[in-house]
Computed example of a mutant assay.
Amino acid sequence: MEAVNCCLPVTEDVVWVRVEEAAESGRVRRLATNLAERLAFPPTRAAEVGLAVTEIGTNLHRHAVEGQVVLRSVRGADRAVIEVLALDRGPGIVDLDLALADGQSTTGTLGVGLGAVRRLADDFAITSRRDRGTILSARFRPERRDADDDVSASGLTRPLGGEEVCGDAYAVRTAPDRLTLMMCDGSGHGPLAATAAREAVRVFCAEPASAPEEMVARLHAALRGTRGGAVAVADLDLVRRTVRFAGLGNIAASVLADGRKRGMVSVPGVAGYQARTIRAFDHELPPGARVVLHSDGLTERWTFDPELVTLPPLLAAASLLRDAGVRRDDASVLVASS
């Protein structure tokens, strides 16, 4: 399912691969190389992407527990890049500096490939905690150059096991001193749920900017004739330091700040079918706060973790999905910095 950033690149989670057998490393490499070719990467750069992904997959197989690789395409107006995300529940890396040195391998880490992956990638980020696991992201542009992306919000979607498409989707609109987030969890799963979620993204991006409760009402009207779903919109005012939130259905939303997780309230209903009332609520947005939206593919029982306000948004989203995700449903999570 596409995760759309209005005015920023469009991100698509192309495939999730669980790396438990040695053969999966080769599969991940082939998928990554094919993606690079589809995005018109030069052959040399496509080979570098394949090498980096091979290192990631091989070391997940050798050292990690429940290792997974996510391949993502990030398409802008004039270029497309590849983003690789790896996450596991393994023993973690005791000494990241040592592990990132080329040629180093320590039992219980991702191993010798980390230094090579960081060197080949244009952007690289990693977090690892003992007995909890490791998460890394690596971004590859067609032509090598220094990082130039300021990513203030990032998310992740994962389909229900056995499904090829995710019925959840999110989008982000940007304006000076403002971020507006939208998430839709299409009812059920599979192609019909994905169709509803895509329609919510289309309308959110096409309609003029409006208050969250007005946008939710528009989404409710737009989803008539589809399977419908849960929708939510959060508007972050970075000057007034407030977030206005409106939700219809079971999209969970929280503000993370001052060592606490503060929930934001959605009202009962199903967009496209039933909405007795649509209300918005205002919340404080302290400096440095994070705003998190997620579908019911994640349990709401997760608690505040200081890393969630310091990690890059994508790694924070991946951490939440790994630790709070449930396997019986589509899942999506969106994290925004403020």
Rank of each mutant, 00 (worst) to 15 (best):
A3D: 02
L8A: 12
E20Q: 06
R30M: 08
R38K: 15
A40I: 00
P43T: 10
R45W: 06
A46D: 07
A46M: 02
A47Q: 14
V49R: 09
V49T: 13
V49P: 11
G50I: 09
A52M: 07
V53D: 03
T54M: 03
G57T: 01
E66H: 15
E66A: 09
V74P: 00
E83F: 00
V84F: 10
A86H: 11
L87R: 10
L87K: 04
P91T: 10
I93R: 05
L98E: 15
A99I: 03
L100S: 08
G103F: 08
S105M: 12
G108F: 13
V112F: 08
A116G: 03
V117R: 07
R119D: 12
F124S: 08
T127F: 03
S128K: 10
S137N: 02
F140N: 08
D146W: 04
D148C: 13
S152G: 14
P159H: 03
E163F: 01
E163R: 13
E163S: 07
E164V: 02
E164S: 12
V165E: 13
C166G: 02
C166K: 09
C166I: 09
P176G: 06
D177H: 12
M183D: 05
G186Q: 07
S187A: 14
G188H: 03
A194E: 14
A194N: 06
T195D: 14
R198N: 11
C205Q: 04
A217Q: 12
R218N: 06
L219A: 10
R227F: 00
A232F: 03
V233K: 01
A234H: 02
A234F: 09
D235I: 10
L236E: 08
D237P: 12
L238P: 10
R241T: 05
V243E: 07
R244V: 15
F245N: 08
N250H: 11
S254Y: 15
D258H: 12
G259A: 07
R262T: 13
V265R: 15
Q274D: 13
A280Y: 02
V291P: 11
D296V: 13
D296E: 14
T299F: 06
W302H: 15
T303Y: 07
L315H: 04
L320G: 03
G325K: 05
R327Y: 05
R328I: 02
D329E: 11
S332A: 15
